[in-house]
Amino acid sequence: MSTSVMVIGAGPAGLQAASTLSHLGFDVTVVEQQQYLGGAVARHQYQVLMPDFSSGPELLRHLIERVNEDPHIKIYTGTSVEDVSESRDIFSITLSGAHAETIQSHAVVLATGFDHFNPARDGKYGYGIFPDVITGAELEEMFAKGPIRRPSNGEVPQSVAFIYCVGSRDRQVGNTYCSRVCCAVSAKQSIELREQLPKARISMFYMDVRTYGLWEDSLYWRSQEEAGVVYVKGRIAEVTEQHGRPVLKGEDTLVRGPFEWPFDLIVLAAGMEPSRGTHDMAKKFQVSLESHGFIKQAHTIHNASLTDHPGVFVAGAASGPKAIEDSIAEGDVASLAVFDYLKAKVTL
């Protein structure tokens, strides 16, 4: 009999897992609640990826073509997991939506990803009140669709500020963790912005700049050296509006003390939170969450994909904030862990 594995979520981690699982000899069903494949990369239409400025659409084409062309992979978009039961190590999974059927799976990979923190939950940023305050994801959409303009009046911004750690590292909003990628993504975006706005003032307001490992010079230094981006150490206290322009209020903790600074466009580096799908699936498949609400890795160091429920594996941002490159790597890690788990039970 064939051995089937279900992958839930069709972002970079899930698509990679599906392809690798198929290469390892499994029949794979990919269940995705949206109508499209590619997860956050597709949703926000990332054109240029952190860290290497490679093409987002090209990455998606690569990931999607592989699963589309693979006869052992069934793609169920517009489909959700309704109900799960388990008997003798086999999951019976009832689906709803475009493919309302019940599927037997020997193992499941949860690749349910993240949602961006909604800055409207933290009133001090004025997001949703002042039109020129946008999120980093919205900036990606602007990059995709056309020239950068101020949402309030359609004018070319002469000054742009990035605010770091929005919704991250902040007990006041309930997220005490670092979202890991926003510093580097903001640096990448500032370099891209410079191409469009050769004369604009671009300022980054940070508490720490966390451009890990090889991202340090390739993003953080480069943004200063090549793009003339200015970094100010000080977490923004509040955003208000003066004469139709957002004003940032804060303390330059190293140099100039208190400031009030108007900008034409404010980009909020909104952090990552466990997606709603991650929470729902954790509940349905009875896997534990860690204290921040992501799926708990049973052996964080030993193997990134193990949950505390045998037969259920995790890959990508469902288990914590991470970059696309790490999510894709975890798609492979989870596939190998599934292989390890099933090889003792069934003949391939």
């Binding site: 909604n118 939950r121 039109p131 946008i134 999120t135 994801a137 919205e138 959409e141 006041q172 609400g293």
Partner: peptide
Amino acid sequence: TSGWEFITKTVDKRAIMK
């Protein structure tokens, strides 16, 4: 006013509850 399609999500402050 720009006509960009922006993400709209319901603000749920209960998420802070954790």
